[in-house]
Simulated assay, not measured.
Amino acid sequence: MKSKILKDWQNREKSIEELHNDSIVWISEINFIRDEIRFLEHLLKDNYIDCLSAGLYKKIETLVNQMSFERVAGKTLEIVIKEQEAVLSNLIKTNSVLSNKNYLDNHRKLEFEMDSFAAKYKRIKKEIFEIIENVMKQKEQKKLLS
């Protein structure tokens, strides 16, 4: 299946294998982010008291809510990607991938949504690390002063 498909949004050809590979990479990235969210939640729980004493309750609450939203968004994206993979499989069987503009449009939208999902998550992750880093520095300074 070395047939090439013109991707309108980048003016380059992408094979059916590359379209399939995109889905595999996206699912992998969603699973990785899901694992990282679990880690970040544990990190926040372990430093929760220190965050409270630093007056960061509202900021932590906002970040936890954003992580919860991203977790749900990841699950939804994963379902949509798997459905898109099923469509691709059917299109391959009927040899009609090249003529199905709807599939290509949906693939492009998924690509945009995955980029957006990953960017939002990375921003949240960066904010959490900055908060935890500052809290840990404050904790160390208190130890040194004691």
Rank of each mutant, 00 (worst) to 15 (best):
I27W: 00
Y121G: 03
E140Y: 05
K101R: 06
L91M: 04
S15L: 05
V97D: 03
D50K: 12
F129P: 01
A118P: 00
L144G: 08
C51Y: 04
N31G: 07
T94G: 05
W9P: 00
E113A: 10
D8S: 05
Q66I: 05
T76F: 06
M1D: 10
I37W: 13
M67R: 11
F117H: 13
M1Y: 06
N47T: 12
H107M: 08
E127F: 05
I33L: 07
M136L: 15
T94I: 04
M1W: 03
I5F: 01
I132E: 08
E111C: 03
L63H: 09
L52R: 12
A118E: 12
L19W: 03
K142R: 14
M114T: 09
E83F: 02
I5W: 02
M136Q: 14
D115F: 07
T62H: 13
I24G: 03
N100E: 00
K125H: 15
I131C: 06
R123D: 15
N47S: 14
K93A: 10
V135T: 04
Q84I: 03
S3V: 06
A118V: 13
S23K: 03
N31T: 11
E83K: 08
A73S: 13
H42V: 04
E113M: 08
V72A: 14
L52A: 07
E111R: 07
Q141V: 06
